[in-house]
Amino acid sequence: MFDTSAYNLVILSLAGGLISLLGSVGIFVSLIIQRRVERLQEILEELVDLSYQTEQNLTSNIYRLIQKYQMYYILPHGPSKTIMRYLDFTMALVIISWLGLLILTFKPPFQYRVLLHVLPILGSLSLMIYYRKLLQNAINPLENQMLNAIIPPPVQLRSVSFLSRYVNVSVRSLLQQARLRVVFRKVKRGKSSGQTCYDAEIVLKEELSFDDFFYYFSFPLQKKPHTLKHFVAFGHLQLLFPPDPVTGKPVPVGRNVNITLGWCNWGDLPPVEVEARLLIFPLGEKHPIAYRFKLLEEKSYYAPQTDYTMAVDRGIMFTVDDGHIVIIEGEERLPAYELAKDWFQLNLGRRYFDPEISQKEPVECTTEVYIK
């Protein structure tokens, strides 16, 4: 027969020892996370340094940096699960010890002031659960987003808006490394009145996939009795690369990405030459980045034959208000802005105005992003 008071002291000492071990594990994990964060910050600084070297094509270097970042960012699932099982088992024993002692020391009848003795234990349980959540987020930030501001996921290194908002980086230089291009591809649609009809697929090509920005693309149409004088496409570009189908490894960045911005009738394109304009609105800036492309017609496509011009368009000023792009100055520089302004919202995907159908609302572009 054990003495009750002595047994209670033994249980309390066991609970205290388990809590000490729990704190030691927390220190051990924090040291690992600290070293990991330092390494990730070094890679991020290296990425920022590369972005300012605009004279060179550094897409391969940036691509390798993002892959290296992912290697340090993701911990293997085995050790992560083992640590979390240890935390859960230890916390369960401590909770059982506390509840057991509470039951042993309880003397009926029940009175409301008993709740005052229970409150400290409930507060301690809440803190332990929160402590577990902190460690879970630190160990596996891929599935838990609490510490994303400190440890951004690898996909954020290709996010123009994230880098412009939280990192001191030149957006113009970074986009220059993406090597953006625009091409029009001739695609057979079918036959009408015995004649073959063709559509033009408007494609934005990226040598290195940068995303998370709002874009506005336009070019003049051939003079026809259309409501619109310009083809207009706009939207919030967010890329999603599925895991590798064979290995299952996550893919944080892609190369030679093709993004369909919209479609129009091939016959609506100006003959021989098209001058197109692309505006990119990074969410952390106040002026968009403007591209001007001169595309020349070949047999079955329009492609830029000369290098594009790229500059910050200070004639346009914008801000982001509750997920909506608001143009403060320079509305007149955007063709068909009056039709499109109500659709300047984030996370709505890619949209465009088809000159041959009703202009009350834009058409959603559902063509999947592909690598070619």
Rank of each mutant, 00 (worst) to 15 (best):
Q56F: 10
V10P: 01
L9Y: 07
F28H: 12
N8E: 13
L40P: 04
I62N: 00
N8A: 11
S5N: 11
S30F: 12
L40Q: 06
A15R: 09
V37M: 07
S13P: 00
Q67V: 07
I11G: 04
Q34C: 04
Q67H: 14
R36T: 04
S51M: 00
L44G: 08
A15D: 14
R36P: 03
A6P: 02
L65N: 05
D49V: 12
L50M: 06
Q41R: 14
L47Q: 06
I33S: 04
S30K: 12
V48M: 00
R39W: 05
Y52T: 10
L47I: 14
I62W: 01
Q67S: 08
I62F: 00
I43S: 05
I32M: 07
I66P: 06
Y7D: 07
L31K: 15
L44N: 02
G16M: 13
S51H: 01
V48I: 11
N61S: 06
I11A: 08
I11W: 08
F28R: 11
I11F: 09
L58C: 03
K68N: 09
V48A: 04
I33T: 10
I11S: 02
T4M: 14
L65K: 07
S24T: 12
R36C: 09
S5D: 10
V29C: 09
V29R: 06
D49Y: 05
T4D: 14
E38C: 02
S51E: 03
V48N: 02
T54N: 01
S24G: 13
L18E: 09
